[in-house]
Design a protein around this nucleic acid. Sequence first.
RNA 1: GGCCCGUUGGUCAAGUGGCCUAAGACUCCGGCCUCUCACGCCGGCAACAGCGGUUCGAAUCCGCUACGGGUCACCA
Length: 514
Amino acid sequence: MTDNQEVRVRFAPSPTGPLHIGGVRTALYNYLFARQHNGKFLLRIEDTDQTRFVPGAQDYIIESLRWCSILPDEGVSVGGDYGPYVQSERKEIYVQYAQQLLDNDRAYYAFDTAEELEAERERLHTEKGETFQYDAAHRNGMKNSLSMSPKEVTEWLGSGRPYVIRFKMPENVELTIFDMIRGEVKVNTSTLDDKVLFKSDGMPTYHLANIVDDHLMKITHVIRGEEWLPSMPLHVMLYKAFGWEDTMPQFAHLPLLLKPDGNGKLSKRDGDRLGFPVFPLRWPMDLTKEEIASGYRENGYYPEAFINMLALLGWNSGTEKEIFSMDELVEAFSMERVSKSGAKFNPEKAQWFNHEYLIARSDEQIAKESVPFLHGKENLYEPAILVKICGLVKDRLHFVKDIWEQVNFFFEAPVDYEEKAVKKRWKEETPSQMAELCAVLEKLEDFSTEMCEATVKEWVTVKEYNPGNIFNVIRLCLVGASKGPGVFDIMSILGKGEVLSRITAATGKISIVA
RNA sequence: GGCCCGUUGGUCAAGUGGCCUAAGACUCCGGCCUCUCACGCCGGCAACAGCGGUUCGAAUCCGCUACGGGUCACCA
């Protein structure tokens, strides 16, 4: 490609199930790269294998990308000038190109059945201990248009016998190919085999469809997972065979996302076994199946946090900045700073990212988001008070959905009291002290945080009580545990009546227990 | 097994021949703050896979070994 050409990249998943986070990251890097270069990001569906097609998977992919704000400029669901963007709708196109390769002697027909291939594999293994490869060294011993007479080939083709079209991989060519992340990679074509380009069911394989589509859609950069690195030589050879070398895209093979436990690449099956989601969204989305894999969205992640976390798995800016908005990512991203080695990810760090995004939100926003998790009790307070409550507890939250355990005491009086705290704080004189306190608070007109604090502190000072112990006893009465915001904030929000009633209730209950 | 890619603390990672007695973040552990928990602040534990070479000098360059991973389908 030339420098002044518009950058065009694509994300090309197969609709074989839910997209896992590795796929989302690949889409993200493609998107960032496109945005950064004022280029186009396309979404293409590679569904050439009908046997693995999973209904709903395509919608899942689109919905996942939408949730992440990784929006295609072109492609399935948005259209564009280079469609259709679903490979099964492009069948006739691939036929032409396969024919071109056949005509130029760069491909050939092969009639070997699965059984025959298996038999040959078995024979070679037992007789010579070799691994069978359909290549220059073996193709003459197989049933194909290279080993058979033209007449026979014509007959077999005419008889409706099933056949595939294989790429005729040149022998002994030293290839030096370039990867944007890994640099030069050298391979000898003799180690490569004659890959099937066209299947007997009339569909192309990934390799053919991918190269033809990338060429036709004017893709300039192929950014994909490292699992494709071994087929890069084949793809380069295909570009050469078609005579498209001049417009061949640049390749970038991204490091894999590894299982957090043990080794190996993260797979769809890992699911909830790991204790955190490996999918952006719950799967299946429609909940009609029994097996449900959880998603980041349903687990309470903000899409911005999810994206931020993913972006930093395999790339970093080289600075100490870790929190990036999408716009900042677009600005800072660079292929040169993508790491070469696979990354296991750290569930705790993922939560930390969400926490950072959560505390950056306004108290008003948190209050709004909290409503579904307040068990219908949100109307117990004025909206402004609810906002205040959220502001007081947001520091200790990873997810808004977990807010109830931080605020429950604002809505419900404690039914029991943390044993450890009772043991430590509840003294013989406590009940009478609390009775005194109630009398003092009773007279208080202004129940603001400040007035509560001033009043209680004055009383404690005059009586020469231990402030720490008194405050904690009050907390125990109001909350039932040693947690939560400042005790005077809690008093003020609960209000005089509730505070008095809770202290009275606690005094009764705890003395009975003790 | 063949081919290919990789290897800095538990994890993500900075580092592109001297500034490295190797940054930062997450986790963990201490301490401070403090009415509790959390936040915040301060501090701590903890790494250049090994061996050879190149060089005045190597985490950085080269080679070998080891280990890890990917891939070897009419799946993508």
